[in-house]
Simulated scan of single mutants.
Amino acid sequence: MRRISRYMLGIAATVGTVVTPVLAPAASAVPAAANPGPGFPARYSAPYAETWNSPSALAGARNASGQKYFTLAFVIAGNGCNATFNGDTSVTDASWVSAVNSLRAAGGDVIVSFGGASGTELGAACTSVSSLKAQYKRVVDSLNLTRVDLDIEGSTLDNTAANDRRDKALAQLQSEYATAGRHLDVQYTLPVNPTGLEQNSINLLNNAKSNGLNVNLVNIMTMDYGPAMDMGKAATDAATALHSQLGRIWTSKSSAQLWAMEGNTPMIGVNDTKSEVFSTANASTLAKFAASKGIQELSFWSLGRDKACATNGQLSDSCSGTPQSAYQFTRTLR
């Protein structure tokens, strides 16, 4: 079932505008890398923070809710094979580096998400494994990352050449970092139905395995199914189906290891399919289920929407459209 992506909301503000490409800095003017972070615990939440919003959102959410981990969305191609935030902002932007450093000083950390539904995905823009690997390495080293997220959806999911190129580049990078005594976790974020992943996502994961890529977790987008339904049950049904599917790919893993390989990301409040509403009660259902099963990561789309709108039922990129207090979803899914 084809679905509308949550990311259309945030990117819509840039559609139809002229974007000035951000070129890679000259070798003599490379900014200092971000400070190293503490990494991640065995189980955590990391809501998606929109990089087209202010970097101060990280500190605002941390101060208000205690949230320490975030997923920065999205790195896509700008001006060809050139990794940028949102297609128009350098990954070494001083404001973002400062926000990441402040979060890490407070004991938190960030994941960077590559892809999303809009713009040009880096694996499609970079036409060789070596050039793609160089862009991933530039982002990882500039922000001192220990974890990256690959959000692959829409037509990109069916681009088998890009999928193979991406898996080879990341597998090589993982190996090179391991040789140097560093660790890089790689996770995939994929669309899902309550019955589980579709075949193109399964093909992508099989390709990752065949290329020797160590996939840390598979994060499913539990949203935009089409008809109205109980969104809490839909999220847990999808997680249960994923558990079986992962077991057929990684056959040597135990049941507990497979649950620990899962992530779950709903779109809070009113979804792009407006008949679907993920409520605060649904969030509680998902949080309890995740704790009982040992799911590694919970997230949601998106941090900038974690507050009530003026009118319930409203679809917005800046509020949830469902009754809630500010950062209620952040607190519940922690």
Rank of each mutant, 00 (worst) to 15 (best):
A235S: 15
A256S: 15
S5I: 09
S54T: 15
V129D: 02
G60R: 14
S118M: 12
E262S: 11
L58S: 07
A27W: 07
G294C: 07
A42T: 15
N82L: 06
G78N: 13
V270L: 03
M8F: 08
V110T: 12
N206T: 12
I76E: 00
G108T: 05
P55L: 00
N206I: 01
P194R: 07
Y327L: 05
G116M: 03
V215M: 05
L173H: 08
F40C: 11
W301G: 10
K307C: 06
W250L: 07
A124D: 05
W96N: 02
Q172V: 05
N206L: 11
P191V: 06
G232H: 08
N101F: 07
S175W: 00
L242W: 09
M221G: 07
D149P: 15
Q174M: 05
I202G: 02
T127M: 01
A49T: 13
W52R: 13
L157I: 11
G119Y: 02
G226D: 04
D151F: 07
V22N: 02
T236A: 04
D158F: 09
S128E: 00
S284G: 08
A34Y: 01
S128M: 02
Q172I: 05
G294E: 02
G116Q: 05
N207V: 12
L132S: 06
A46C: 09
L213N: 10
V110M: 04
S113E: 02
P55N: 00
D272A: 13
T311D: 01
D224E: 15
F114T: 13
T322L: 00
A291S: 14
T273N: 14
A29W: 00
V19F: 01
G269R: 10
E276F: 04
R147Y: 15
L298D: 00
T195D: 08
R43G: 01
S142I: 01
T127Y: 00
V270R: 13
A238P: 14
E50Q: 08
Y44I: 06
A26P: 10
N79R: 12
D141A: 05
A61C: 12
T14Y: 10
P21I: 05
A281F: 02
L145F: 07
G108P: 13
D109W: 04
I111W: 02
T251W: 00
Y177I: 10
